[in-house]
Design a protein around this nucleic acid. Structure first.
Length: 345
RNA sequence: GGAGAGGUGUCCGAGUGGUUUAAGGUGCACGCCUGGAACGCGUGUAUGGAUGAAAGUCCAUCGGGAGUUCGAAUCUCCCUCUCUCCGCCA
């Protein structure tokens, strides 16, 4: 979330980025609300200064028994009522302001290509498309043939989108997770195993709430959300902390199950293991100095690529264009792995 | 789920309604002292916000929120976290 201060200092930039990200938001009402907020603060803080002074006077008079305090106290009564009312208005303005701020997307980085999905840029391709001298099967057939995933029985348990890995499928899933965790921790990432359920503040800080609340699983009874990615718990682990810059960068790797309702995407890529409600992911997160962020992003990309190279998978890297960028991203690379059967990524 | 104890600044710790809009210590920074250091002495030492060109001035913050009061770190209620004990435990 961008701070009011930043928005005020960079009005044009913010407006531009809203346009580039194709968000339908007007920041003018935020700016005018902010003016209202400032004038209220001015008023109420003057009154509070006054209150503090009278308060001091009262205690002084009481101590040396010099003067009667009844007039002062009755003045204070009026003052307090006034302050309380102004504070109430200020509170509601602040509330509506911070609500509106949650809908302002992040500023894009200068190297992010501007435009829509069609303007995504292929940065790099690695490896070769594998060729086969026999007819190839899709992943679903392969899973059936080798008893890797039991889609039918999974439906008994939870419904579609919640895969039941079996036999070697279960082992394969586990070893891939291990494989990635091992490599990344060797590369200096601290391994974490985070909670999968989080309070409602956590997805707010990562920009998942309020915008994507329909895509998240929510447990009403305890006011907890199932994480859509390990990024949510990890980003929040240092909440309300001030990190010493000598401790940076902090590099974390974590496995988590990820839960996504995928609301509104029914019928699209729903076969087999594509677009699941629950899937497994190994996530990399870094806390870095702002001036190093883009260098760190490049090295993070390299670390992620190294997994695919070790697995000898043909892939390409895409720099996402502004309109395809997620709400809270400034810059984003997608790594797309070649799928021989689908003949696409 | 029940009962109790606790949460104060970097840390330790005082503080049960008004010279505490947080004592004292410790740590840290700078200065003096010294050949250099330790000790000692002195000064400074939070975060956020409003205002201002700046210096500064002001406001808020004692786990979080609400309340009582002219006035709350202090009293009341709710929540949260840590510790101890009891219950439950697929």
């Amino acid at each position: 979330m961008l701070s009011l201060k930043y928005i005020n200092e960079n009005i044009n930039l913010v407006k531009e980025c809203i346009k580039y990200k194709k968000c339908d938001i007007n920041i003018n009402d935020i700016l005018s609300l902010d003016l209202e907020r400032k004038s209220l603060i001015n008023k109420v803080e003057k009154l509070k200064a006054n209150r503090n002074q009278i308060n001091k006077q009262i205690s002084k008079n009481r101590n040396d028994k010099s003067e009667d305090t009844t007039t002062l106290i009755s003045n204070m009564k009026e003052l307090s009522v006034e302050i309380k009312n102004l504070d109430k208005s200020l509170f509601s303005i602040n509330n509506s302001l911070s609500n509106k701020l949650l809908y302002i997307p992040n500023i894009i980085h200068e190297t992010t290509p501007k435009g829509s999905v069609n303007d995504n840029v292929v940065i790099k391709e690695w490896g070769k498309k594998p060729e086969f001298n026999f007819e190839i099967k899709d992943h679903k057939d392969l899973c059936d043939l080798n008893n890797l995933v039991d889609f039918k029985r999974a439906a008994n348990i939870s419904g579609s989108g919640f895969p039941l890995y079996t036999n070697n499928g279960a082992k394969l899933e586990r070893s891939l997770i291990n494989f990635m965790l091992d490599i990344h921790s060797k590369n200096g990432y601290t391994e974490l195993f985070p909670p999968f359920l989080v309070n409602s503040n956590s997805p707010k800080t990562t920009g998942n709430l309020p915008k994507f609340s329909d895509d998240m699983y929510y447990i009403d009874k305890d006011d907890l959300y199932c994480i859509p990615t390990a990024e949510v718990p990890i980003t929040n682990m240092h909440l309300n902390e001030i990190l010493d810059d000598s401790d940076l960068p902090k590099k974390y790797v974590a496995y988590s199950a990820c839960f996504r309702r995928e609301a509104g995407s029914y019928g699209k890529d729903t076969k087999g293991l594509l677009r699941l409600h629950q899937f497994n992911k190994v996530e990399l997160v870094k806390f870095v100095k702002p001036k190093d962020s883009y260098v760190e992003l490049e090295s993070l990309l390299k670390d992620a690529e190294s997994i695919l190279q070790k697995l000898n998978l043909h892939y390409r890297i895409i720099a996402l264009a502004s309109g395809d960028l997620s709400f809270s991203a400034a810059k984003c690379y997608d790594i797309e792995v070649w799928s021989p059967f689908e003949k696409n990524i």
